[in-house]
Computed example of a mutant assay.
Amino acid sequence: MRVLNYLELADRLERSGIGTATMHQRKALADTEVDLLTSPWNGGTLPDAALRRAVGDPFFEAYDVAHCNVIGPGSVAVARHAKRNDVPLVLHSHVTAEDFGESFRFSSEVAPVLEPYLRWFYSQADLVLCPSEYTKSNLESYPVDAPIRPVSNGVDAGRLEGHEELREAYRDRYDLDGMVVFAVGNVFERKGLTRFCELAQETDHAFAWFGHYDEGPQASPTVRKWTQNPPENVTFTGWVDDIRGGFGAGDVYLFPTKDENQGIAVLEAMACGKAVVLSDLPVFREYYTDGEDCLLCSTHEEYREALERLAADPDLRERLGENARETAAKHSLDRLGEELVTAYEDVVAGDPVA
């Protein structure tokens, strides 16, 4: 089976959660019998495809299933081509109106307008894949008129091997000591930036956020406020070439996000055996158990108390971390590959109902 796994704007999304999720898909599929294609354009690029079309060759490559991970014009073109030519179409819902807000400047204003577009776009699919039952419920509320199937984004535990060996180097680089409370990923207000910084102001622990933050006109005022004038015990590292260093340097992964479709960095922290403190959201209740492999918090006081408990009880940190590692193992790339292949086989057979 030849499958197109398409990531529009791949160079711009390389550092995003969507880029990581797509990388996981492709790595998972590499160990299957799927013949993987990453560009829909005949010749590999749009200019090449246009030249070939001018001499009578097809504009699009040939494939048995089209799987798109983004919602832009290139993906719309692939979707329309698939529908015109009876090619089974899988659309992956990494973007919802709920998780679009508070991500960058004006994103909250755009989010309500985005929902009708997403409803139209995803409804073209023979099958919509999404990271969680929570995301599925959001899509159904729009409503999206297509079968919807949750599939974990997975975690690439192998990519994180050796993080412990980078601990001292990264702690020295960013002047971190003691119990380090940390986050990993792009810096957005939706991911709990303000709460992260306000909690830091109330403790003596070192806080570090390993990840890119916008500084240009697209940066939200909140991101600009905290990154330009952070609390004394908060470090914003910016882009880190080897993210293993962040997971090595940190002790407690704090993620007070307001909305999430799954949260790949959470799974990465768990795969590294870190204690994690998360927002008490349906998506995390779906995958994790409070007090067993994480601590779930709803209020500012609960977050502060959770950090105090973990600081006072290293054994609790270790127990939560070991259980978290076992939880992350359930989201392996091997399992992701199996679920993707099943999805492709189902749409080819005309039986995509989850």
Rank of each mutant, 00 (worst) to 15 (best):
S137A: 15
N138C: 13
L139P: 06
E140A: 15
E140T: 13
S141H: 13
S141W: 08
S141M: 10
Y142P: 08
Y142S: 05
P143I: 05
P143R: 14
D145L: 12
A146Y: 11
P147Q: 08
S152M: 03
S152Y: 00
S152G: 01
N153L: 11
G154Q: 02
D156S: 12
A157D: 02
A157Y: 04
E161F: 00
G162F: 02
H163V: 02
E165S: 15
R167G: 00
E168G: 03
D172R: 15
L176V: 08
L176R: 06
D177A: 12
V180L: 07
V181L: 09
A183K: 05
N186V: 14
R190Y: 10
K191V: 03
K191T: 02
G192L: 08
R195I: 08
R195Y: 06
L199S: 06
D204L: 05
D204M: 04
H205I: 03
W209A: 06
F210V: 04
F210S: 02
H212Y: 11
Q218A: 14
S220W: 12
P221H: 11
T222Q: 11
V223M: 11
K225F: 12
W226V: 05
T227V: 13
Q228S: 15
Q228G: 14
N229L: 10
F236L: 04
F236S: 02
F236R: 01
T237K: 01
T237Q: 02
W239N: 11
W239H: 15
D242W: 09
I243P: 00
G245L: 10
G246M: 05
F247Y: 15
G248W: 11
G250D: 03
V252M: 07
V252A: 07
Y253I: 10
K258C: 01
Q262H: 03
G263R: 03
L267Y: 03
L267W: 06
L267P: 08
E268P: 06
